[in-house]
């Protein structure tokens, strides 16, 4: 079975994602690393993250991992999660405007306030909890995951890709926003598969068996 490198750049807790990957595919060799060579030699790469985008990009740029991720994005299966997804866009409006990795062409924007649901109740930010993921295209990562399954989210910003063709799924809050993106060998999700119980583990398992083809 293949090796998986979970990129460790000091942003947040990697315990859950590592445990979830091991649980989803006990035969996989999961390592948590910041070493460029190990990441470039792994069969596939997971790029997680929580926190603020400025700190994230600063850590990636200082460690040289920005270049590594851009290389990985051209060569092997890559899964971006939460802030890891946002960092793959061109830029984010968080922290007064932050240039990102530009793997996906588009922007990361804040939920516009005040949000109201259909009954006039105000919606909270961060968007936190279990919401439905509406798959827009067939993809190996959606295998055995029912349409509109609930995944766990916690975020205040979301991705707006320039090209609608790379949208893999949307979620309503209260309008539809893009919660998953895919292009070639890269897949990225705003929700946390490692915290989304059975459907989340299934997505991780699908990623661990993905050859990088749509």
């Amino acid at each position: 079975m293949s090796s998986v490198a979970v990129i460790d750049y000091g942003m947040g807790n990697l315990h859950s994602i590592v445990k979830a990957l091991q649980h989803a595919a006990p035969e996989a060799d999961v390592v948590c690393v910041s070493d460029a060579d190990v990441i470039l030699n792994a069969d596939r790469v997971v790029f997680p993250g929580v926190g603020a985008i400025r700190d994230c990009m600063q850590a990636l740029n200082q460690s040289g991992l920005s270049d590594v991720i851009q290389q990985v994005a051209k060569t092997k299966p890559l899964l971006g999660i939460c802030l890891g997804m946002q960092a793959l866009l061109t830029d984010s409006e968080e922290n007064g405007g932050t240039p990102c990795l530009d793997v996906f062409s588009g922007h990361v924007v804040h939920f516009s306030e005040p949000l109201k649901d259909g009954n006039g109740n105000s919606l909270k930010i961060p968007h936190m909890g279990w919401n439905q993921v509406h798959q827009l295209q067939q993809h190996p990562l959606w295998e055995n995951i029912p349409q509109d399954s609930r995944f766990y989210f916690v975020h205040s910003y979301y991705a707006k890709p320039d090209n609608a063709a790379i949208m893999a799924a949307t979620t309503q809050y209260p309008e539809a926003f893009t919660c998953a993106l895919t292009q070639d060998n890269v897949f990225a999700v705003q929700f946390h598969p490692e915290k989304s119980q059975a459907v989340g583990l299934q997505l991780l398992k699908n990623f661990l068996h993905w050859d990088g083809q749509a």
């Binding site: 279990w130 439905q132 609930r150």
Partner: peptide, 8 residues
């Protein structure tokens, strides 16, 4: 179709 209320 929206965010579920949570039981903790």
């Amino acid at each position: 179709m929206s965010l579920a209320k949570r039981i903790i």
